[in-house]
Design a protein around this nucleic acid. Sequence first.
DNA 1: TATGAATGAGCATTCATTCAT
DNA 2: GATGAATGAATGCTCATTCAT
Lengths: 195, 195, 195, 195
Amino acid sequence: MEARRKISKRDSIIEAAIEVFSQKGYHNTRMEEIAIAAGAGKGTIYEYFSSKMELFHDILLTGWRKIEEDISVDEMASRPVAEQLLHMLSGHLRYFQQNRQLTRVTICEVKTIDQELVEWALQMKEEKEKQVCSMIAAGIERGELRPDLDIDIVSRMICSLIPYFASYVVMNDLDLDSYRLADQISAVILTGIKK
Amino acid sequence: MEARRKISKRDSIIEAAIEVFSQKGYHNTRMEEIAIAAGAGKGTIYEYFSSKMELFHDILLTGWRKIEEDISVDEMASRPVAEQLLHMLSGHLRYFQQNRQLTRVTICEVKTIDQELVEWALQMKEEKEKQVCSMIAAGIERGELRPDLDIDIVSRMICSLIPYFASYVVMNDLDLDSYRLADQISAVILTGIKK
Amino acid sequence: MEARRKISKRDSIIEAAIEVFSQKGYHNTRMEEIAIAAGAGKGTIYEYFSSKMELFHDILLTGWRKIEEDISVDEMASRPVAEQLLHMLSGHLRYFQQNRQLTRVTICEVKTIDQELVEWALQMKEEKEKQVCSMIAAGIERGELRPDLDIDIVSRMICSLIPYFASYVVMNDLDLDSYRLADQISAVILTGIKK
Amino acid sequence: MEARRKISKRDSIIEAAIEVFSQKGYHNTRMEEIAIAAGAGKGTIYEYFSSKMELFHDILLTGWRKIEEDISVDEMASRPVAEQLLHMLSGHLRYFQQNRQLTRVTICEVKTIDQELVEWALQMKEEKEKQVCSMIAAGIERGELRPDLDIDIVSRMICSLIPYFASYVVMNDLDLDSYRLADQISAVILTGIKK
DNA sequence: TATGAATGAGCATTCATTCAT
DNA sequence: GATGAATGAATGCTCATTCAT
């Protein structure tokens, strides 16, 4: 029971931190606010996280992992690009909708804070771009896509859609049909790149 | 000569502020750093700007205005979408390349700082989206584009490219051929949306 | 014990603040000095007082309340004016002697600081004048005092004695026999106003 | 003409300084405000006064000298105390009324500012007390006053009236008949001390 | 383990004073 | 002399972090 309580304490802190960070941003959030929102003491946060930065970093990591778990692209690698693209986009959009606050934090905040974090975020981005590159390259290989495409550029075009529509979804409280939206987006892109 | 010196002092502060803000971010920049970088005293900054926030806001506004001046979209309105799109994208990309630091500040920093500023940034974005919407709508009207397009979505797809490639251009110090890049991007989009 | 310590911390800050304010004046006192004198950190002061002004205001209020508690005039209202006057004056003088530093702050500092505070101080003064007015009026009523007296003027004359002798007592470190002093003062006034 | 202009510049600065100091107090007054009120440049003030403190000190000195010129007590020394007292009090009260702002500065501000100034103010006060002491002593000598009076105390009682009624006169914009007021005050005191 | 009182480094801002014109 | 742009020392206040309980 103690272990369970400890876990729930840690989780309530994370939950509260996501809430407050997403509303006020990293720099405008005070540790005390998080503590209050978590129903814990200020000191308790430091039992689980060594600093404000680490807490933030942890949230970012968790967020990213959850996305990647949610949208496992690899196992789709053999499917047609059309399907993969649709799967990826709709997966992301659905995730954004279901994790609005976490998304807001993950997308917007990283750049202002810490060199280490910026580089980490860049890595995440590049990883994503590489994933999409592979998808495109394979599509060309298989003859699905036009062979004259600049793979890097197309990959970045697709990746650009994700954070932009993320903030679109997050900022508006409207509940979108994420599948239909993804369908429309990928239709345009596909027509633009298919053979 | 007095007038000239005053202007150059103000300008040297702005220049220094862009430099430091773009490197360290708003919250990690101390006024003293800006002063030193500008070769001025701390107090001098306050002769021209009433607060750190106002200085930052001023830079953002200036940056935005310069972009809009640089890429006057309106006078192109009667041209084919293909041309307009290419003009807009290559214009932005060229601007980003020529104003790397200002771009970095303009694109990245806004969200963490101030509610008022966030709303202002949203307005700018929406304005841009509306511009592109008109472009698309007119293109459909003229029979250049597929009539079944969801104008809003396509507009957002195009707008998503701008900040993403902005940070791509800004983060890497490589000198890209912005016209070629824009050409490739718009080719894909165009194929995706043209009749 | 926790409660006790918290109280003593707050008190040690107040004590230190009275000490430093009384020696250097409000504007020449830095918060850090108070903190050092209190054996506390700068931040600790702000745990108990939201600003320098509030700390000062609090001290003033406390000082005033202590005086009024110390010299409860009301319960003497039925006694002869001679007795009341002597009681009031000797009470004040004794208080001033026993709370030299607080007196110095209370009497001298108010006017330079803050409009709100000035008005509060004026109210305190007017309250005091009214108290004495009642005393005089009742004395005339009872036939103790000359009926042709201008009550307002006499009241002000008596009130003028208090801050003046306060600073006299406070500035000199001599230990006066406050009762004898009060006796002499009130004797002169009484002879001047009695029937 | 230059000399005349220079004099008027200096005077306009003093005039403006009295105005602003009396309204905002020493610490809340900025040199720039004085400069603006004087219709001069900030730097110009330093042509005539080496520092803010010196400007303030100069005003105080001038104020005090004007009082003493206005109410020359010495030449009255041979007259009866009744007359002297009335002369002194009514003189002061008239002066206060005619120089409201200067009075406000002279009476209220001194204590918070500068050790040197505090001591100067104490000297002024003691000088005044000595003057009145002589007056009383002479009155006793001449058999006008009761011989058992404590000269110091009575002197302080009289001196206490001056700043108190000064602030009374200054704070209220009512135009008082200073002669009548002085008459009433001195009547009470005299009855209290005469043989 | 959990707490929150205590801390002090860090920073935006003010304003008396200087000095080139 | 007169000016006001430029300066930087000085200071109130914030908030992440610590540690005694």
